[in-house]
Design a protein around this nucleic acid. Structure first.
Lengths: 154, 154
DNA sequence: TCTTGACCTCAAGTTCACTTGAGAAAGTAG
DNA sequence: CTACTTTCTCAAGTGAACTTGAGGTCAAGA
């Protein structure tokens, strides 16, 4: 259980326990390149402390409606081998915050119009500006529509 | 093309044109009971004017991160046969707004902590209150996690 | 040494919200 | 009546984000 090469490395089970993620999910993120675990000579995954931070970031970003693809793009700004510095995280944080602000603004505008629009019964797509078909997700391709509109641009 | 029994009824194609939805999506919502179309003697779907309003509601609610299941629950408060009144829509609107407020609040709290948390590199699940594993979606069952946390409670 | 538990890979299954395709029937225009 | 468009049903496919299962390996304790 204590796979620790003296450098504070963690097994997948320990990471799962600390993050609340399923072991299978962590493997999946590793396969998808969102994190990149080292290996023991025997082939078992080893994680460093900052991998937990990466996973936390993934979870929070998902709650905000970012897809794994978008999160991967954000995380590319972080070093994989070296433990990211305050400056590294700060860079991501700023871009992240801009998207957060945009999303909050969208919801606030929506709220401000809600009573006057759904409330009055005028809700009709051609007349009501609450809903704008132009920027709907899922214009292209099949599969389910995105639940919240996309925001990270490459 | 003009299937109109004198009462302003609309064909599925006309509803698709007015809402911007695909015909297949409208059929799907009908099958799922989110709307409930009448039929011609020949079996073709007929829609009343307020069905467009229901569809608008579905689209907007989806943008806010509600699942179809949650939206179905909300729409159950509306009469299916009778055209919903201002009072009917108002009731939904209030509940809807409460969820909107909650979601905005969550994002604002997240934003306020973002610089101090991700920015400083302290992002760690056991210490950081940004992320709360307790109310994560997808605790039960398989399949993809909800993108934004659930809010409509039955 | 044997057993046990955590871990491995790879393939296939699952949910959501649809779309696509096949084959048939309804309704309209000429 | 014929041609054509629209609509119908039903089955199967799609993408995202995982989970589940089968069958095998690694490492620590009795």
């Amino acid at each position: 259980m204590a796979i620790d090469t003296g450098k504070g490395l963690l097994s997948i089970g320990e990471v799962a326990a600390r993050t609340g993620l399923a072991v299978s999910a962590i493997r999946y993120y590793d396969d998808e390149g969102l994190i990149s675990a080292r290996r023991t000579p025997g082939g078992k995954r080893l994680f460093i402390r900052s991998d937990i931070r990466r996973l936390s970031f993934i979870l929070i970003a998902q709650q905000l409606g970012f897809s794994l693809e978008e999160i991967r793009t954000q995380l590319k700004q972080l070093p994989l081998e070296r433990t990211p510095t305050k400056r590294d995280w700060g860079r991501i944080s700023r871009g992240f915050r801009a998207h957060l602000d945009a999303r909050i603004g969208m919801l606030e505008r929506l709220r401000d119009r809600l009573d006057g629009c759904i409330g009055c019964g005028c809700l009709s797509l051609d007349a009501c500006k609450l809903y704008n078909p132009g920027d709907r997700a899922g214009e292209s391709g099949t599969g389910p529509r995105l639940v919240v509109q996309k925001s990270v641009t490459g």
